[in-house]
Design a protein around this nucleic acid. Structure first.
Lengths: 145, 145
DNA sequence: CTTACTGCAAATCTTTTGCAACGTC
DNA sequence: GACGTTGCAAAAGATTTGCAGTAAG
């Protein structure tokens, strides 16, 4: 965890962003909840418990930067806000199962799309840099209803 | 086209929604632009040219209904608004290539995911009803930059 | 004639921006 | 010390809601 934190700070520095206490804290909040897909609001809520001074705009600005330098990326689960996830989390082969009843998000690994990507690049001349695959449906607990 | 329009009206009726002129018009706008992925704002803009009286809230409310009864579904291309697409459009095997430079959206067909879905249902006991696959990258025109 | 639907305006919610004060390098 | 960064408050967008009037079945 400390290792990741340090490498993210380095990446910020490389891109000549300053390592401020707020940015470090936001990174720590994200690392502590790496399994969660937090939204800006949620990051702010947790961050405020650690430092009540921190502003929501700072959180938004930091997440934007972390997205730009590819530490995070945005995901939309259709619940009205942008959520974030670390980019290096099994990078290319992890997808999401989203329950349309309770909203739970389950992660799922598979590398089937590698093949598809190469095929797309050949066939359509579109240069693929990333993909997102979401399955909607009902989780185990919601199927009875 | 007329056939689809009629069947959509029927579906509205079945669910005991009224067939108002506004709803008919919104459906026609959507059918006339079935290749486009319009947002609520865009639907309203086109609709207003046909009937300047129509209100934006009506458009939002109608799109919500059409989504609920599965005539449309929402897609998010990361441009800050919800876009819509007919649900029956090659339903299960059409995906999107989104250019992160110019924002162009290219459609792409493939049925690879059918297999994956069955596999997920077996493996995770998640009941899949739909999926969304998006590839991000650079379209032909933007690759030179 | 009843109940759902509409248009408008106001409200809400998420995200962005302007700006003076502040802190990192 | 310079310049990027912060917090706050205000602004901006997208979407939702309340309500009185209107119209579909």
């Amino acid at each position: 965890m400390q290792k990741k934190f340090d490498s993210y700070c380095e990446r910020l520095q490389e891109k000549s962003y300053k390592i401020t206490p707020q940015r470090q804290m936001i990174l720590k909040v994200l690392l502590d909840n790496a399994d969660k897909h937090l939204s800006a609001e949620e990051v702010h809520y947790i961050a405020k418990q650690r430092d009540p001074e921190i502003g929501l705009a700072t959180v938004y600005r930091t997440l934007e930067i972390l997205d730009n330098i590819n530490i995070l990326h945005k995901i939309d689960f259709g619940d009205g806000c942008i959520r974030y996830e670390f980019s290096d989390k099994d990078a290319h082969n992890h997808h999401h199962l989203i329950c349309i009843n309770c909203g739970r998000v389950i992660e799922f690994n598979d590398d089937l799309l590698e093949t598809l990507e190469t095929w797309i690049e050949k066939k359509t001349k579109f240069e693929v840099t990333n993909h997102q695959l979401k399955f909607f449906g009902y989780c185990k607990d919601c199927q009875s209803e």
